[in-house]
Amino acid sequence: MILTDADLQAIGLTLRLASTVTVLLLLLGTPLAWWLARTSSWLKAPIGALVALPLVLPPTVLGFYLLVAMGPNGPLGQLTQSLGLGSLAFSFWGLVVGSIFYSLPFVVQPIQNSIEAMGARPLEIAATLGAGPIDRFFTVVVPLAKGGIITAAVLGFAHTIGEFGVVLMIGGNIPGETRVLSVQIYDHVEALEYGRAHWLAAGMLVFSFLTLLTLYVFQGRKRRSNALSFGG
């Protein structure tokens, strides 16, 4: 067997984390992207900048502050303790929370871009045809922003799989709980098990490349078939 049980456990954990985070991010990120695309509020710029922060911030900085927030005296820690959930730090759900922040821009921005590109006109048309707000969201926004939503899901998923710094800061290295793939590779290298590290690292490389390749092929085809959008 090329991969050890610990490797397989790390892979399973990583996939579970990335799936959970992607689902939650689509649920949270879509309304946020909608708001950012449509609002003329002065809050648009500061909120947009906050969302984009993980793009430029070292993951350790984000992880550090999340760790403090999740700690027994931090606001998140106080909240989870008062709800009887204990501490989030060094737990799977702590990783989920951290990853949501970390991958947020990768989900919000593509959706926001496609809603902005769609413009207000399709919604106005739907309204004049008798569609109410919720009807408009599902029959107009979702299908017209579909490309952005798929891109967001793929990027959010792939980015969460490759996460390292934040995990190490708030999750530590607990097998089956917080020891994800990137941490497992790090452990192999620390232990000078280069052969094992290679298998996992090469696997990640191939996975990431194939993911992006699929995405770009899909986007290219979509651009050609959707040459027409709303003119004027």
Binding site: R121, E124, T128, G132, V140, P143, N226, L228, F230, G231
Partner: peptide, 20 residues
């Protein structure tokens, strides 16, 4: 009365068909 509850239709200047 919100637009979608008005018994009215609107034809826009540019193409207004849903592309999807």
């Amino acid at each position: 009365v919100p637009t979608h509850e008005r018994s009215m239709a609107y034809v826009f200047q540019e193409s207004s068909l849903f592309p999807h």
